[in-house]
């Protein structure tokens, strides 16, 4: 028998702990990405000289480079400039910043989707800028963003495995550690895969359903 059931059962609790860390990273990371992304999108739209351009470039740059290398930079480079956190925090920040670049694009198209008439109506009512953004534009823009948020959440859940490379002890790293210390990779890696699937498959079905329900009506 290739598959060792007793071994598999014995390692399940530790793997579940790893899964818990993965979920933790995902939830905090998504919140960070959603917040940062919004800030980036608004700053870009405000067309502040230099700053808007810099942000636009950073967004493209982050989207054009590997998450793994970004994680290495945060883990190896930043400490030499005196910026240093524990691995878990570093991991969350890296993946949050990485996804904020994608979220910024989603917000941007959401903001663009708010019709010119809305802006003009706000002007006609002499609403101040903050009010126009806060009560008119963003509420409409964010509605279109919410379903995408779910998709990015699931994507981040799977992507967070990359953080195992900078010693974050999430599901993947746990499986790997079990594998190398017992010289048995089959059970931990298979279980890790199944755990990823067990969370992400139902989640994506759910998001699909929500997406269809809240699809923008044209």
């Amino acid at each position: 028998m290739i598959w060792d059931n007793a071994f598999a059962i014995s390692i399940l609790p530790i793997l579940l702990q790893g899964l818990w860390t993965t979920v933790h990273i995902t939830v905090v990371g998504t919140l960070l990405a959603a917040g940062l992304g919004l800030v980036f999108a608004v700053l870009r739209r405000l067309a502040i000289p230099v700053l808007s351009k810099v942000i636009a470039f950073l967004v493209v740059f982050v989207r054009g480079t590997p998450l793994l290398v970004q994680a290495y930079v945060a883990f190896f480079v930043l400490p030499s400039y005196g910026i240093s956190f524990d691995a878990l925090t570093t991991g969350i920040v890296v993946i949050g910043v990485n996804y904020s670049a994608y979220m910024a694009e989603v917000y941007r198209s959401g903001i663009q989707g708010v019709s010119k008439g809305q802006w003009e109506a706000a002007t006609a009512l002499s609403l101040p800028g903050t009010r126009t953004w806060g009560r008119i534009v963003l509420p409409q823009a964010i509605r279109t963003v919410v379903p995408m948020l779910g998709n990015y959440l699931i994507q981040m859940f799977k992507d967070s495995a990359v953080l195992s490379a900078i010693t974050v002890v999430e599901l993947m790293a746990t499986a790997q550690a079990i594998g190398s210390s017992n010289f048995r990779y089959l059970e931990p890696l298979t279980l890790a895969a199944l755990l990823f699937l067990a969370v992400s498959y139902p989640a994506s079905r759910l998001v699909n359903r929500l997406e269809r329900r809240y699809a923008p009506q044209h």
Binding site: A161, M172, T190
Partner: peptide, 16 residues
């Protein structure tokens, strides 16, 4: 293949 991590898949093919 969409529901699990690429890294898990790669490790599985290599180590398992």
């Amino acid at each position: 293949f969409r529901g699990t991590s690429l890294l898990v898949q790669m490790f599985w093919l290599f180590f398992a």
